[in-house]
């Protein structure tokens, strides 16, 4: 880093902490924490792929994870069991249409985010990132939203175009 850049960096840093005058007025009892300490909780994925971790997985790998950890609730070939089907879904025509990944979910990143944070039901957040990518690929491939051998990773997943991406109306735009 040149002296010039270092100076700019220092000025920016001073600006960022510049409201430290304001910090001092409050109780100031929060402890500063860095990215490494946050990592285990930092699990939200945005539709543009922000937050996606390293790793990769294919549908074939996902099928094997599915058989071990998902089959008992979501059924054979993800056709539904005691819990929701993860494949299929007719056209959405009204409130009685069953919402599925293929016919409703606007972003493929939500599949990764939700599996990683909430599944398997009895042991959430025990899957490796590779396993989550693989399960995501498995579900997307079963629904023919990606090809059978397309690997899912931080680069490919945000590019998957979901059929119902434009199927939504923001109810109160003035509240956003």
């Amino acid at each position: 880093m040149s002296m010039h850049k270092l100076l700019i960096f220092a000025v920016l840093l001073a600006l960022a902490v510049g409201s430290s005058g304001a910090f001092a007025q409050g109780p100031n009892l929060g402890k500063p924490i860095g990215p490494a300490e946050i990592a285990a909780w930092d699990i939200s994925i945005l539709p543009d792929g922000t937050g996606l971790p390293p790793g990769s997985g294919t549908s074939a790998q996902g099928a094997s994870v599915y058989a071990q950890k998902c089959f008992m609730c979501h059924g054979e070939n993800a056709k539904g069991g005691t819990n929701a089907a993860l494949v299929g879904g007719g056209p959405i025509t009204g409130m009685e249409s069953v919402k599925t990944v293929a016919n409703f979910w606007p972003y493929a990143t939500t599949v990764f985010d939700y599996i990683r944070r909430a599944m398997p039901w009895q042991q959430p957040r025990t899957l490796t990132n590779d396993e989550v990518y693989a399960l995501t690929a498995y579900i997307l491939a079963l629904n023919k939203l990606i090809a059978e051998n397309d690997p899912m990773n931080a680069q490919t997943l945000p590019k998957v175009r979901m059929p119902n991406r434009d199927g939504f109306i923001i109810r109160f735009p003035d509240k956003l």
Binding site: P91, M95, G167, F168, I169, R171
Partner: peptide, 11 residues
């Protein structure tokens, strides 16, 4: 979901 198949988002 609305009768035309669209859905409200961010209600």
């Amino acid at each position: 979901v609305l009768p035309n198949g669209k859905a409200y988002q961010f209600y």
